[in-house]
Design a protein around this nucleic acid. Structure first.
Lengths: 339, 339
DNA sequence: CCTGGCACTCACGTCGTACGAGTGCCAAGT
DNA sequence: ACTTGGCACTCGTACGACGTGAGTGCCAGG
């Protein structure tokens, strides 16, 4: 059905269209890529590719452009991931190693990714649900107010103010710290509920009411609403492909403002070893049907903390994007593992 | 020079143009607004307004549109700040009171503002340089590593990991805590360098090297790089005025990605009592010359923590935007003051 | 199965034209 | 001195006709 030359023609069409953004005709194609056959032959192959649904015409007298299905085939079988240049590798390293805390790492990564790919970059903060407790600090703000500060092993910090039912002495606070500290230190967040289960019974009666109210805030913060955060950069790059998004720029920008949508987009697969590509209609998100998304999980070795990726027109440089995304994810993963 | 009727004509032009986005002609204007004069008279007034530079033609056979100078006059003398509807006030309240920490307050505010004004909203996190230290926590991560967590009275949390020159005992850490805690608690960040000045001399010799290295990190974090953060929302609203930004959407999006630019925009005036409006060319930022910015400081009473505002086409609903921005700033100010 | 040739189809740019909104100005009216 | 109706003029826009050329599909011959 699809012999090697037809595949070669498809690759040529995708590559030409991606770089020129204009429908590519049989003649130009036979000339520029040394296929060794005449335009007429190319036309026949094109007709076959069109029958199979890999390419289309915008109109009768125009050249061909790839369909989503065509891009899919291209990504799966025809493209080789572009390795980064030495300059790019160095750029990544120097750019990221200046990071001063987790927020900084994420912000730098997302900017970096946007610059490398010249597209919209999205990076999810390390997920709470997959981290462990590094430290829980309890600060005695006022007799009846506490500030809880939780720090995870990924460097993430969550904080909450707790209004207490009663007044607390400094000694009580020390007891609280001990009670929580011993149970939580190093515990994965998913295990926190179990680790705290026996707490009310084990604690001195005097501080039980306070303790339970603190406990409920802790659980609520960490487990029930594991709030996920996301950083975006490079939205201005969307305008570069403004021609690709005649009336669709709007929904794309809207989708990018919806945390939930983005999480869905990035979070669907978090396998840190492979890069995933969603092309056009494959996207579950209405409004992103004219875009492609390249995602990957990142984190130390097996454990993926979270996802990151880039989003652009279906007509994008897949090989380059996949390479950049993978490289940045690796660096960030190592960085977080070492920290 | 500019009698009352001419001003009235200017107001009518601005209002019509803002709502329809089409150049307004003398006839339509005389009909829709009950000015009590004929189109011809309106034309004369228009000619006068044009001589003064308050309005222009796009071309000969088109109606008039306001110039930046025209909008300026409108904002300064002709528009009345629109009070919010009851529903809007209630929306603000319910939306903001669910906030769980500072980050949440800021994120909710910026979303709210974008929705109310249907424009791009920008909110600066409470500035570090204007806050005081609420608490400095020192966590002993490993023998030669410390985690510093600084919490300000505005609820902002900054954290840094410090690699120490030597190994530290638990007792040393306690001493460190005391040394810093006593000096910093409640101190305005600007006074921190002074408060710490005598620290190396006063401390036990044993921990001095460690202490100075911690100190330098603290100072660096808090004073030398008072990193300002910013939240944005509603960029999708820019596409609504896509007709206003034919080729200028790009630079606007780019400007919105530059923290520095935004801070400059918002930070120029932080008087919490008045709302400031920058119209078109008045903007110091290249690339935002086709936009207007409405900003205000927020914070408890006299002390402005930071700024917030909205950005849109010069052709925007100034009265409504000013009202919304002011209202949200007040609520957020109260909220933070009470927290 | 490839190739050159050939007729055919359309999108696109150009040109000319008609239309109409809106203006500027003037002379008459108040 | 200001307002008003009238009128000629400008110019941007919409519309239709037309030529052009890129690109195709098909066919007959190698």
């Amino acid at each position: 059905m699809l012999d090697d030359r037809k595949l070669e023609v498809l690759r040529a069409i995708v590559e030409d269209f991606v770089s020129t953004n204009e429908p590519v005709g049989s003649k130009a194609l036979a000339e520029r890529h040394s296929l060794g056959v005449s335009p007429a032959t190319v036309r026949n192959d094109m007709a076959a590719l069109e029958d199979e649904g890999f390419i289309t015409h915008p109109h009768t007298s125009a050249g061909r452009i790839p369909t989503d299905k065509g891009y899919r085939l291209f990504v799966d079988r025809l493209s080789q991931v572009k390795p980064l240049s030495g300059a790019e590798r160095r750029a990544i390293q120097t750019f990221l190693e200046g990071a001063v805390d987790l927020d900084d790492v994420v912000r730098r990564s997302v900017r970096l990714l946007a610059q490398l790919t010249r597209q919209v970059a999205v990076v999810q903060y390390p997920s709470l649900s997959r981290s462990s407790v590094r430290h829980l600090e309890i600060v005695h703000l006022a007799p009846n107010r506490l500030l809880l500060v939780l720090i995870t092993d990924t460097g993430r910090v969550e904080q909450r103010v707790v209004e207490l039912p009663g007044v607390l002495s400094e000694d009580d606070v020390v007891q609280l710290r001990q009670a929580f500290g011993s149970r939580l230190h190093g515990a994965p967040l998913v295990d926190v509920p179990a680790a705290l289960a026996d707490l009310p019974d084990a604690a001195p009666v005097a501080i039980r009411p306070v303790l339970t109210s603190v406990m409920s805030v802790v659980l609520e913060t960490l487990v029930e609403q594991p709030e996920e955060r996301i950083a975006i950069s490079g939205t201005a790059n969307l305008t570069r492909s403004a021609l690709d998004f005649p009336n669709t720029l709007r929904p794309v920008l809207e989708a990018l403002e919806e945390q939930v949508v983005l999480l869905k987009l990035i979070g669907e697969v978090n396998d840190p070893t492979t890069v995933h590509v969603k092309i056009g209609e494959e996207n579950s998100v209405e409004g992103l049907r004219s875009t492609s998304v390249v995602t990957v999980g990142y984190g130390p070795e097996q454990a993926a903390y979270a996802g990151m990726g880039v989003l652009g027109p279906t007509r994008m440089d897949y090989a380059g994007s996949i390479g950049s995304v993978r490289a940045v994810a690796r660096y960030v993963g190592e960085l977080l593992a070492g920290a």
